[in-house]
């Protein structure tokens, strides 16, 4: 790992702020998933939230310094892709 401090701010806090930003963006996307008319808006809302979750998992892995989360993120990316393709193929 590189240094853990930048101008008096811990890098872990910056990662935590980015994670909170991604969570807020996911909830704003969830509005379109609930409210948005039709099935395709819901499919793409699930896709968007899933791809935000990948970055969130990698950030959590860096915050808690546990490299297990990257495997989970890779698996989640593959599952999200397969789910989207299956949902569009019916």
């Amino acid at each position: 790992m590189a240094g853990t401090e930048l101008f008096g701010i811990e890098m872990v806090d910056i990662f935590l702020a980015m994670a909170i930003t991604i969570v807020i963006a996911s909830f704003v996307s969830l509005y379109r998933g609930i409210e948005g008319p039709g099935i395709f808006n819901r499919i793409i809302a699930v896709n968007v939230i899933g791809t935000k979750t990948i970055v969130l998992l990698v950030l959590i892995g860096f915050i808690y310094e546990r490299p297990d989360f990257f495997d989970i993120a890779l698996l989640y990316a593959i599952l999200n892709f397969i789910m989207t393709i299956a949902a569009t193929r019916y």
């Binding site: 499919i43 793409i44 999200n80 989207t84 393709i85 193929r89």
Partner: peptide
């Protein structure tokens, strides 16, 4: 994967 899934949904 992300452009592929976007293309699949649009198609």
């Amino acid at each position: 994967a992300n452009p592929t899934s976007t293309h699949a949904i649009a198609k």
